[in-house]
Design a protein around this nucleic acid. Structure first.
Length: 276
DNA sequence: CAAGTTACCTGACGGC
DNA sequence: TGCCGTCAGGTAACTT
C-alpha cells in the first residue's frame, strides 16, 4: 500500500479538485472492504455538502464537508483514488464513486479490499484526535516525535527496532519500505532491540526517517506495483531505494551483499556490515 | 503487557 | 498451457 509519502502525494493531488466542490451522488458496488462501506451514512451526511478541507493523518485521508462531517479513507495495500468523467465505464475493483458538481467522479479502486472508509460526525469528528486517532502515534514530522519520546517508550523492551517503527501507535505512517530505507540510512540494524538504542541514535534515526519520507514525497512516492497518483503518474522514489527489494545485490555504501530476513512477518532488507 | 502469528483478499510470478 | 506455492505497500484480532 501506500505508506505516508504515497498518501500525502494522493492528498495533495486530490485536494485542488475537491475543495469548493459539492458531492451530488454516491455509488457503491456493494462489496465489503476491510470493514463495511458506510454508504448510508455517507449519503445522509455528504450528499449536497461542500468539501471544505482535504488532509492526511497517518495513512488516512480526511475529506471534510461544510457540515463538519469527515469522510476517512484508508487505502489498505492496493487502494487508489482518481478522477473520471461519469461516462467512463467503471473499472474492475472500483468500489465507491463520488460524483461532484463539476461532473467529475472521484473513484475508489482497491484490488485486495484491505482499505476502509469511515464517516465521522458530531463529537467524533470534532474531537477526531481523541476518537478516531486515539491510538495513533505522532506524525513523523511533528515535534512530539522526539528522542525523549522514543527512549521512554523503548525502555525495557526487546522489540526489534523495525517492528517498533512500523507500529502506528509509536509513530504514524512508517510502513515496511520506509522502515527498511530509514534504518539503512541511519546505519541501524532492523533487528536491534529498542532498549539498546541511545538517545543520540534515536535522534539520528528520526532525522533519517524525516529525510527519507520528504524525499519520497518530492519524488511523488514509490511505485511498487500499482501505486499511481491522481494524475495517473507513477512515483519514482523506488529509483532511490538503497535496500528495499535488493537482496543479494551489493550495498551502495560498502562491499557487502544486502540480506533479506523476516522480522515480524515482514520482508526486511539490510546491509549486515553497515547496519549495527 | 509485550511480541509474534494469523487472517482478511486478489493477482503476479516462478517452478514444475 | 496450467496448476500450485509464495509473495506483496496494512491493520487488527488473535495467541503465546
Amino acid at each position: 500500500m501506500p505508506e505516508l509519502p504515497e498518501v500525502e502525494v494522493i492528498c495533495r493531488g486530490i485536494r485542488p479538485h475537491l475543495l469548493g466542490r459539492s458531492i451530488e451522488k454516491i455509488s457503491h458496488n456493494g462489496k465489503m472492504l476491510r470493514l463495511p462501506v458506510p454508504v448510508d451514512a455517507m449519503r445522509l451526511h455528504l450528499v449536497g455538502r461542500e468539501i471544505v478541507e482535504v488532509k492526511r493523518r497517518a495513512k488516512y485521508l480526511q475529506i471534510i464537508a461544510d457540515n463538519g462531517t469527515i469522510l476517512i479513507i484508508h487505502l489498505g495495500m492496493t487502494g487508489n483514488l482518481s478522477f473520471f468523467g461519469p461516462d467512463t465505464p467503471p473499472a474492475r475493483h472500483d468500489h465507491v464513486h463520488l460524483l461532484l458538481d463539476n461532473d467529475l467522479e472521484l473513484r475508489y479502486n482497491d484490488t485486495r479490499r484491505f482499505g476502509s472508509l469511515h464517516i465521522l460526525t458530531g463529537h467524533e469528528a470534532e474531537d477526531i484526535e481523541t476518537t478516531f486517532f486515539s491510538t495513533t502515534g505522532p506524525e513523523p514530522f511533528s515535534t512530539a516525535f522526539s528522542p525523549e519520546y522514543l527512549v521512554n517508550l523503548a525502555r525495557g523492551r526487546v522489540m526489534p527496532v523495525k517492528s517498533f517503527l512500523m507500529t502506528n501507535q509509536i509513530v504514524a505512517g512508517v510502513g515496511n519500505i520506509y522502515a527498511n530505507e530509514s534504518l539503512f540510512q541511519a546505519a541501524i540494524s532492523p533487528q536491534r532491540p529498542i532498549s539498546t538504542i541511545s538517545r543520540t541514535s534515536w535522534q539520528h534515526l528520526i532525522t533519517c526517517i524525516r529525510q527519507i519520507l520528504s524525499q519520497a514525497i518530492e519524488c511523488g512516492g514509490s511505485t511498487i506495483s500499482d501505486f499511481v497518483n491522481v494524475s495517473k503518474e507513477s512515483g519514482y522514489f523506488q529509483m532511490n531505494f538503497q535496500v528495499y527489494g535488493r537482496k543479494g545485490q551489493p550495498c551502495k555504501r560498502c562491499i557487502a551483499e544486502i540480506n533479506k530476513s523476516q522480522i515480524g512477518g515482514r520482508a526486511s532488507y539490510y546491509c549486515p556490515k553497515c547496519q549495527k
